[in-house]
Amino acid sequence: MKGFEDKRDFYRMMLNSEVAVTVIDEEINTHMSATCRDLSATGMAFEIDHPLALSTQVNVKVDSAGSQIQALDVSGRVVRVEQESNNCYLIGITIEEID
Rank of each mutant, 00 (worst) to 15 (best):
I24N: 01
S67Y: 13
S85V: 06
D38S: 08
E97W: 14
A20V: 14
D38E: 08
E18A: 10
I91H: 03
T35W: 07
C36E: 02
L15P: 03
R8F: 09
G76V: 01
D6L: 07
M1W: 08
Q70G: 08
V74M: 05
V58W: 02
E96R: 10
S40N: 09
E26D: 15
I69T: 09
S75R: 10
Q68A: 12
F4Y: 13
R8A: 06
E47N: 07
L15A: 04
P51K: 01
E82R: 06
L52F: 08
E82G: 01
V78C: 00
M14Q: 15
E26S: 14
A34Y: 00
G92K: 01
M13K: 15
R8H: 09
A65S: 12
I24S: 01
R12P: 06
V81E: 04
T42V: 11
S67F: 11
L39R: 02
D25K: 12
Q70L: 14
L54V: 07
Q57H: 13
D9H: 12
L39S: 00
N59H: 12
P51L: 03
E18D: 11
R12S: 07
T22Y: 06
A71F: 12
D73F: 05
M13S: 13
V58K: 04
G92R: 06
Q70P: 10
A53L: 14
M1R: 11
A65L: 14
H50Q: 14
K2R: 15
S67G: 09
I93Y: 01
V78L: 02
I98S: 08
T30M: 15
I91M: 01
E27K: 14
D6Y: 14
M44A: 01
L54P: 02
N16K: 11
M1P: 05
E96F: 07
M13E: 11
E84D: 06
N29Q: 11
Q68E: 10
A41S: 11
R80S: 02
H50M: 04
Q68G: 10
R77S: 06
S67C: 07
G76N: 00
E97L: 09
T94V: 10
K2D: 13
M32V: 07
V21D: 01
M13P: 07
V81A: 03
L52M: 08
F4R: 12
G43Q: 02
K7V: 09
V21G: 02
T42G: 03
P51W: 03
Q83G: 00
D49Y: 08
A53D: 08
R8K: 08
Q83V: 05
C88D: 12
